[in-house]
Design a protein around this nucleic acid. Sequence first.
DNA 1: GCGCGCCTTCGACAATAGCTTAAAGCATTT
DNA 2: AAATGCTTTAAGCTATTGTCGAAGGCGCGC
Lengths: 249, 249
Amino acid sequence: MGQGADVLSDPALREIASKIAGEIIISDKPGLEMKKWRERFGLTQVEVAALMGVSASVLSDYESGRRKSPGARFVSRFVRSLILRDIERGGIVLSGLRRILLGSESLKQAVLDMREFSIPITIARFCEYISADLVVGAAHMSTPLLGYTVVDSIKLVLDVPSYDYVKLYGATTQRAAIFTRVTYGRSPMVAVKSMQAGMGGLRPALVVLHGVKKVDELGLEIARRENIPLAVTRIEDVNELIDRLRSIK
Amino acid sequence: MGQGADVLSDPALREIASKIAGEIIISDKPGLEMKKWRERFGLTQVEVAALMGVSASVLSDYESGRRKSPGARFVSRFVRSLILRDIERGGIVLSGLRRILLGSESLKQAVLDMREFSIPITIARFCEYISADLVVGAAHMSTPLLGYTVVDSIKLVLDVPSYDYVKLYGATTQRAAIFTRVTYGRSPMVAVKSMQAGMGGLRPALVVLHGVKKVDELGLEIARRENIPLAVTRIEDVNELIDRLRSIK
DNA sequence: GCGCGCCTTCGACAATAGCTTAAAGCATTT
DNA sequence: AAATGCTTTAAGCTATTGTCGAAGGCGCGC
């Protein structure tokens, strides 16, 4: 049980564990479901049994249907052992289960820079660094930022598969999302809002537009209504923008 | 068990059931977790016990900790009874649990029409009905559509909260998403793609733009790369467009 | 104060899970 | 053919669940 508490302290892992356990429990044949998950993790009965501290025939009893209703304690130990073993082996299967955490090549191309700050910086200070004017959300000048992500907005909408979008937020959404090569400024706001749909309302603390002189009125209105601070940088060269960002300590 | 099969045949309910069951199983105190969920559904032990066909003291034994490791069969029955009872009472709690399925007022305003077809209709036929030209995805002319959703794109991006976006798909994504009052045609494509990020890649089978003469090139490119059929309707009046849609049998 | 409903406790028993070891089956490798 | 590894089957035993009904506690309304 001490083992279990350690493994499931990570919310993401706990979510996966809950999912697996739930599927096993509501299944008409819990044993078969256990087998499915065991095989999905690429583990043998012997291996899982060793991790659980029981003999392999225990698992066989369930998987073959001899035992029909595993108890909560057993299932919990079973799931934890799957997860623990996968973690020990590099977490390959778990990675697949939470595919959204893996970065595709196109994402790497679209993300020009990304960083977490060791010390939070206010939106006001951040905007100074990159010569940006806050056009929406003046009340947020003192909001702290914990990092930023610079994306090539054209590559983002054309090349990056949608399942990679969530990775733009890295370890925290308390960051600035900087869209470069923007034409009007509407699409970034639409994208940010639409991305919220399946992400529990997650969105960046600040959106910065680069390459646009006058923001499209609809884009502005979206920012106002969604209460998302929106800034426009006066820097024209993307590389200079990135240099400025990297100078932030 | 026959009862269980009926209740969980709905994928959405099954998802909720799995979630609840999983939480109970991986909890260090399954009985307390059961109590939490029972109370969350606003049910008494007596009521749940009656639904499960056992005496109330059985539930008390678990919730009080006298019994520590409920079996899969028991937990499954427990969860099903919660769901069944809530459904009988109008599904209020379940609705809260899957809030994304409830429509907010602004969504109602933004959705001009929405329907499922009793008989699938091909994209080609569908476009004929609404005088639409397929500009991307000619190979999809025979793809079947099971329904459509007509949205006011301006209201969608301005008024509708992002958590309501998923409801645009109703019972199936194998539908046409029709955006009215479109200016360039880029935002709808950006929105559709961005919405996929947290929704497991779900997207409509066809996107129809209304109100635009020439689709923005980036919008076209998104459609091509995402392999989303894109059509533009020649009808100018929104009401006529809706009348046409409603004439589809 | 009484009745009612919900919850808890308790004793008791049947059924089954949890678990072991040994043997057998099966596929693959040496 | 023998060895190896994984899986299944079987017998058997202990521990625990699943379940009951009776009794008691508590809060609320009449």
